[in-house]
Design a protein around this nucleic acid. Sequence first.
DNA 1: AGCACGCCGACT
DNA 2: GTCGGCGTGCTC
Length: 665
Amino acid sequence: MKAGTIIYQVALNVPLRRLFDYLPPENETPLLARGTRVLVPFGRQTLVGIIFGHSEKSAFSHDQLKAIRQVCDPAPLFPESLCTFIEKTAAYYHHPLGEVAFSGTPSLLREGKPCPSLPDDIAISTQASDIALNEQQQFALQAIHDAQHSFQPFLLEGVTGSGKTEIYLRAAQIASQKNQQILILVPEISLTPQTQQRFIERFGQAVICYHSRMTPKERFIAWLKVKEGHAVIVIGTRSSIFLPFTQLGLIVVDEEHDSSFKQQEGFRYSARDMAVLRAKLLSCPVVLGSATPAFETLYNAQSGKYQHLTLPLRATKVQLPTMTHLDVRHKKLEGGLSAQLIQRIEQHLKNEGQVLLFINRRGFAPTYLCYSCNWMAQCPRCDARLTYHQRKAALICHHCTYQSSVNQQCPDCQSEDLHPVGQGTEQLEAVLTKRFPEIAIARIDSDATRKKGSLEELLHKAHHKEVPLLIGTQMLAKGHHFPHLSLVAIVDADGGLFSVDFRAVERMAQLLIQVAGRAGRVHQAGEVVIQTCFPDHPLLKQIRSQNYPELAQSLLTERSHCQLPPFAHLALIRAHAMTPQLPEQLLAQIQQSLVHLKIEGVQILGPVPAPMHRRQGHYRYQLLIQAKERKPLHQVLSYSTSILEKSKLAKRVRWSLDVDPLEMF
DNA sequence: AGCACGCCGACT
DNA sequence: GTCGGCGTGCTC
Ligand SMILES: [Zn+2]
Ligand SMILES: [Zn+2]
């Protein structure tokens, strides 16, 4: 190797866990800095890459190396702090660096398009707030203020209406006065124009949003505004954690328990966990806010890693709702609704109240059954039942794209005695329309809100009480606060009680408490009713007391006995293919080699079939790795990826890693 | 991943 | 004969 020649190490958007060495471009240029976007020849194609380093030497000889074809921008696109963050993230998740580097970027940037020019920078114009903070809010704000310029995570625990948002606004104001940027991460569902408006009212045009529903051009401009510092306050969903901040001084993760912060395919990162990492690298505070914190977060607060701030009061004077259950054992149900529940609904409607029925299942019925031989409509590509959709007159799989017409005759016994069994949102809508023909009803699920703008429209109507009766799934439980809501009914609470997934109970408790938080108006306490066949179940008893900290504490104790997260760390190696043999063999090979390694402090469990063995025609398996400490877990993952990258079998199997998995599916 | 190459069975 | 599916190998 000729002395003095510089070799650039370039990250490319390919699933390979290494950087690629390139010679400088033909036309002599000064040293290209880390973060520079370049075009490089790669095999027969030309790819966009980011320079992550340079060196005097390479493992490749000079004539094996190709030269950078083109430098895309006059200055580096990725700030140094973003480059280091990307490196740490890639290492944490054992994911290819190049894919991590491009994961949050606008598509136009990824395709090598030139940067559009930005409109003139508008100075931030802060509108002072006239809202007086209560004592707890003042204490919390002071604590965050005192932590500026140092790494300090906070858990800000407070129910709906306790004034968390006002603290975010004030803390953001303080940071912005120091010329710092502020990132506010929110769940996918709650990034509405109203959310944005609330911040714009306070901070003017220096507020921008970043989410997947923006056009490619809008995303590129927003990305560059963040890099140039024109964006002071950024409200964004998951991928915003990878924005190119240069002056980031505060990160807020609102509703930090929300599962949409974890990407569920491809590069499976948690934006909440990476927010803590990014704050650490930058030495700035990070605030995790929730009424129902994730158990991981509570654990970190209790162990002293995070500072625990509590807002015990509802800042606006709304009373806690009353919470009762309806024992529906041996009761005749009409479309899943007991007579008592229908009576409560009627009562509230009569009193000019607003009612929300919560059921976590869309469609008409989850099962389509033959009464004479027990045949059930099954998806031919998945181990799942088909859902009966009345309006579309179809049987639809909720796990793949399979659809079929509704059988009029049983394929097994030719009987015509076929019936939908169980309830979904569509059925509740039908039953209630029949029962309350005069009342306007809105069904809010992903079927009813498929086209753009329809969710906003429905939420707006619901908010202003144009619709007295609401039926909804998860969607409705999270998004929005309805000021006129007086009754919330959980139609079926029993699904979460007996799940194989150890997190199901946590999720259900969070959901029920969040839903309950929606009930109650300014002058009148709300009512929450839970239909169940297990009224004596200890979890339901605790939920009824609405004491989340206490409930979480007892569930955490159970987790500690079983050495489950947050008392141990998990990782999953998933594999799937058209035949069951390949993925099982592959994982068995890895398991074998790991056993021989004899790494202390880890358990390797499996390979086992995934809870839904077959999905979209693929047979799925997983290998679970469990460890008390992170270090051995990392060793296992490093070793596993090195095998997988070399293995021939792995080429014929789709495999992926999931560090800190949320769902075992 | 994306692309090319080579091999083998099965169709106009 | 040649079209196309899959298995294999490689990308600085
Ligand atoms: Zn039958
Ligand atoms: Zn299916």
